[in-house]
Design a binder for these strands. Sequence first.
DNA 1: CCTACCGATCGGTAGG
DNA 2: CCTACCGATCGGTAGG
Lengths: 222, 222
Amino acid sequence: MSARKKILDAALQEMSAKGADATSLRMIADAVGIKTPSIMYHFPTKDALRKAVLEEQLSRWNDVLPTLIMATSRDGNGRFEALTAELSKFFLEEPARARLIMRELMDRPEEMQLYLNRYIAPWIQLIAEQVQLARSKGNVSGDVDATAFVWVMVTSVMANAALAESIRLEPIAESGPTTQTHTPRLTQELIRMARSSLFSSPLEPHHSQKGESSYHGKLFKR
Amino acid sequence: MSARKKILDAALQEMSAKGADATSLRMIADAVGIKTPSIMYHFPTKDALRKAVLEEQLSRWNDVLPTLIMATSRDGNGRFEALTAELSKFFLEEPARARLIMRELMDRPEEMQLYLNRYIAPWIQLIAEQVQLARSKGNVSGDVDATAFVWVMVTSVMANAALAESIRLEPIAESGPTTQTHTPRLTQELIRMARSSLFSSPLEPHHSQKGESSYHGKLFKR
DNA sequence: CCTACCGATCGGTAGG
DNA sequence: CCTACCGATCGGTAGG
């Protein structure tokens, strides 16, 4: 593996664990087994290294994109469930990825706007259009905000992966043989929610009982 | 306002913006209008200040707890929608709160385990029991994992609030008069999802079409 | 609450 | 890729 790649990998781990601004070049150099000036040969500044790490991870969206588009454009009821499942796989296979992106979104919101627009927003819109299409066909509840739905699922799955090490629920003792590589409970529930929250015409009408529905209006009056 | 409180407030803002480890005492001192040694008079170390800020925010859960318990123990269909709405209010009224907790969960997972167990886990379990009760009455879908559901909603609402400044969707041009203080779209959708994802017996059966359901098994085999 | 100061560590450079 | 070194900033202390 090239020295550059080794540095990128170590930087991803360190920066995702403590945040880029709280990670020193020395920590990264130690992890690789070199001295800090050697890092400067491959990357002109610390900030350039941070950006390289970030852009490498963001560009990985392209790996899941085909699967994602294919799954959601296909017909059938499981397709938006598949969206959440694939998304979970993408983040859980490298938890440092989820943490890094979450951190950068909080550390540098303005800079991340640009990256979101370039790497992520376009295909979120594409998938949202699939949801919208299903909605117009009546396969999906009419009060779903398609674009907001996809964004919520992405951020929720990402946050879930980022916090996976901090929030651990014990697996439920279930009947049947032990499944070795089990999907974590939070992820499993998130996938279930994605599916069931899209179903059209739920049993209860939207405005259910007198005056106790619709918190939207009275919520933020303070 | 006491000097101590001024320091705590400034520290919350700075630490939530850049992370505690990337925030210097000088940044906090400047925000308050004092010098760094003056901070050390009120807090013995930087770490003690960080813990004081964190514990102050975590203890605020007690403010919403009564409302939360009351809303979810009440009967009616809007109660779990109310859970999400109240939770959103709690985090959105002070976005720094959501960011700080998200960051600490990533920075110091082991330390946060203790705080979660002390401040949050008990009443999450309490609300989960309400969901479980509604489930056994048939008011809530049978395949809901009650505990996981509440945790997912808490983390999702928190992440949504933490990223509110980075991810902005334009409000949808809707009929009717302009609502001045509108609930953001992502939050609105999150509330809708909480409600609709709990409904029992959705139109489609769980295992819908031949072989394309249940991603749980085949998801993580790689 | 301040000034003055401490050793340690930071990102980065010079020169090889 | 290294050693040697730079000025700046870090958390924290002494003393008032």
